[in-house]
Computed example of a mutant assay.
Amino acid sequence: MTSIGVEHVGGFHGLPVHTARPSAGDPPAADAVAWRLQCDYDEDLDFAGLWQQFLDTVDAARVRALVIGPWWRDSYTPFAPVMELIVSHADRFPALRALFLADVVGEECEVSWLRMCDITPVLEALPLLEEFTVRGCGREGLALRPLRHTALKSLRFESGGLPGDVVRAVAASELPALERLDLWFGSSWYGGDATVDDIRPVLSGGGFPRLRHLGLQNSEIQDEIALAVGSAPVVAQLETLALSMGTLSDQGGEALLNGQPLNHLARLDLRHHFLTEAVLDRIRIACAPAVVEGGEAEEDYGDPDDEPERYVAVSE
């Protein structure tokens, strides 16, 4: 995993994150923190026991944000039973506005091993949810069905391999309040088989009228995405755009330069790229006064006489 965005959340929904520990003293006020639930190797409780203790000791009706960390103790288990617990007790959380599934980093479990499931029931059970983040790959069952959700403002998939089915479901969903959308496409080796055609309904600008931030990131087809963004109607309504973490090269850079103006943006994120310095400088000039985040180019490990060997920031 990479240092770009893949780390434990330090704050969520504007709240400090507090880890609920069975052996801890008096807990903070239920609505003052984002509650992080995780199984520890030195504790006896499995996640079901930890969840029940949380419900018994914290006023769930006032909880505003939940973060689910490692949900296993001795051996890794799929996420589905955790999702079932959240869904079955959804009525206990009328104030819940933010949910992060699988706040797990590489030292705890590689993102490609995070066996997610169909996460649609969570959104269906929490119609007032405003912020939803999911971390994990799709080769082991990550799924989403198209749905209508009128409260969701931020939707984020952090993946080393995001299935095209999930991307198409997002694009086909009715999310009239959505302001932020981040999709980490990942590697085809780990189930990331989404294509530019899968995101065209998003790029058309008609699906999410309130969208102000779009992240199309961590992709092996970052040049193709850049080309599509160059003429995408949705760009005109954006304040920030992220095309970072992928294999963006001079080909994609030229597509951005030859496409529609991007200088209305507040920020264009291109970090983890394979652009030459000259092309990156031209993008910065063309996009001014927008801030272009680039940094140094990643190293291409391919033989100069062969095809380039570029890589996404988050895969395994």
Rank of each mutant, 00 (worst) to 15 (best):
V67P: 05
A60S: 12
S231V: 10
D59G: 02
Y76N: 13
L256I: 05
D300W: 09
L262Y: 01
L280A: 12
D103V: 01
D103H: 00
D198K: 01
L99F: 12
V104H: 02
G302A: 09
E179H: 06
C109K: 15
D182M: 10
L37A: 06
L227K: 13
S219N: 05
G11A: 14
P94Y: 08
W113K: 15
H13R: 11
R284H: 15
T276H: 09
R36V: 02
E124D: 13
L268Q: 06
G191C: 09
D118C: 09
R282C: 12
E277A: 14
R200M: 09
R73I: 13
E239F: 05
E254P: 07
P28A: 04
P94K: 09
A48S: 11
G5R: 06
G294N: 00
A151S: 13
G205T: 00
L155P: 06
N258Y: 03
S159A: 11
A228P: 07
A286Y: 00
M116V: 07
L175Q: 07
L147Q: 08
D59M: 10
F47E: 06
F54M: 11
E239T: 13
V291L: 13
D193A: 00
D103F: 10
D74C: 07
P146D: 05
T195M: 07
G230Y: 03
A125G: 00
G206I: 02
A297I: 08
V6A: 15
A90I: 03
L126V: 02
F12W: 13
G5W: 05
D305L: 14
A297T: 06
H8M: 07
W184T: 01
V104L: 01
F132S: 01
L248F: 03
E174A: 11
R73P: 09
T276Q: 01
Q251I: 12
R310T: 10
D223N: 10
P201H: 04
T240V: 03
P127I: 01
S187K: 07
D306I: 01
H149N: 04
G141R: 08
E110Q: 15
V67A: 03
V111N: 11
S154G: 06
G252F: 07
K153N: 06
L280D: 04
H89N: 15
S88C: 11
E179Q: 14
V134E: 02
G14V: 03
C117T: 15
I86N: 03
W189H: 13
G207P: 03
L85Y: 02
E298M: 12
M116E: 06
G230E: 01
G259D: 10
C137R: 10
A29F: 11
T19D: 12
D182G: 08
L178D: 00
E124N: 08
V9Y: 08
